[in-house]
Computed example of a mutant assay.
Amino acid sequence: MQFTTVGREIWRGARQAQRLAEANASDPEVQERLRKLRLVKALRESKKSWKEIQDLVGISRATYHRWQKALKEKGLAGLKPRSRRPKHLRTKVHWTPGLLIRIETLRKENPTWGRWSIWLTLRKEGFQMSERTVGRILAYLEKHRRIESVAGYLARTQRGKLKRRVNRPYAKRKPRGYEARAPGDLVQVDTLTLTLGPGSMVKHFSAIDLHSRFVLAEVHSRATAKLSEGFLSLLLARAPFPIRAIQVDGGSEFMAEFEEACCALGIALFVLPPRSPKLNGHVERMQRTFKEEFYTRAFAHPAQRAAGRAGYLPGLLQPPKASHGPGGSCSAGVFG
């Protein structure tokens, strides 16, 4: 029989491997930090500044010394990232089945109630809990699909009551990159509601050409698609150039007869997206000029401005100050 002994070097290597395993040396984060420490040490020996080292390695001077101290005191175990788990955690509160069932019942009977309404009802019934606890229970019930969220309930019950999208047979969005390169390429049209006094309200129709700044305005007592069609006829008659495209918002006065007239005349009709008045900025700014420089004037017969007849009021709308279009050309305004 032959006995063999394990050498001292083998035992030393086994203990070293055990210590490395206990220090979690195979952790990629530990190896990365050790690599950065060696790299910083090499850069410091080559007389690199700390600003250059921080840009190259990605760690600060304080971080280097903190890691170096931990490595010296604890070995590789000191390079292991510390846990960020909070020291004090909120202990889980176990809700009673009676409370869960009662909150679930109240929510199903009143699908739009929030935590405050349910908490107030429970307090009157003798339950002792906080409003936040009711909120956590509601979140638990929604997560496990035992109750429906308020948003989901409203979306489901009001789905048929929502405003349906209007079908525009001819109008479309303005193509991307479309520009007004000549007079008539794009005319912005809009309406403005003005209150002149008690029981006196007018609808101000405005149109402006983006290239020449030609402006036309008309006043009515209402804003309907039929009156908008008449304003379009006036615009075509007064404009000193052919009109090829018109841009309007989604108002009902620019549908029906107005849209049909644009289709029959071969005029492109561009409609703005919802809640985007800034895309009609030129006519919006012109309406502000009318509001500030014309409708603030005192007239001898204010009721005449609210006349219900179809047509414009001659002699009332005066052109504002002349504006200069592209190339320095002065544009002319036509108002009634």
Results as ranks from 00 to 15, higher is better:
176 R>G: 03
57 V>S: 07
120 L>I: 05
285 R>I: 04
272 L>D: 12
215 V>R: 13
206 S>Y: 02
20 L>T: 02
112 T>I: 08
142 E>F: 00
163 K>T: 14
140 Y>W: 11
53 I>C: 06
33 R>D: 08
110 N>T: 10
187 V>H: 03
43 L>C: 08
229 E>H: 04
250 G>Q: 14
131 E>M: 06
156 R>H: 05
323 S>D: 07
82 R>W: 07
277 P>E: 10
131 E>Q: 09
213 R>C: 09
311 G>H: 04
178 Y>A: 08
218 E>P: 01
95 W>C: 02
318 Q>E: 14
4 T>H: 11
242 P>R: 09
45 E>M: 14
95 W>I: 03
141 L>C: 00
238 R>F: 03
303 A>F: 02
233 S>W: 05
112 T>Y: 00
186 L>D: 04
90 R>D: 08
55 D>I: 02
141 L>Y: 03
80 K>M: 08
87 K>M: 06
254 F>Q: 09
38 R>L: 15
53 I>L: 01
68 Q>L: 15
288 R>K: 13
275 R>M: 09
296 T>R: 09
77 A>F: 05
305 R>L: 10
180 A>C: 05
60 S>Y: 06
178 Y>N: 13
23 A>P: 02
316 L>S: 05
178 Y>M: 12
4 T>A: 11
123 R>V: 14
214 F>A: 00
231 F>W: 07
308 G>R: 01
281 G>F: 12
71 L>S: 05
294 F>G: 03
300 A>K: 14
89 L>V: 10
234 L>I: 00
245 A>E: 05
91 T>W: 01
83 S>P: 06
7 G>A: 06
3 F>R: 13
208 I>T: 09
99 L>C: 06
127 F>P: 11
163 K>A: 12
92 K>Y: 02
321 K>I: 13
274 P>W: 08
83 S>W: 08
146 R>K: 15
180 A>N: 10
198 P>V: 09
326 P>Q: 12
50 W>P: 01
31 Q>R: 14
236 L>M: 12
271 V>A: 07
275 R>I: 01
17 A>L: 14
49 S>Q: 14
289 T>A: 10
112 T>Q: 08
175 P>F: 10
121 T>I: 05
180 A>M: 06
192 L>F: 15
216 L>C: 00
239 A>P: 12
199 G>F: 00
27 D>N: 15
88 H>N: 11
291 K>A: 12
31 Q>N: 00
14 A>R: 12
317 L>N: 10
31 Q>A: 13
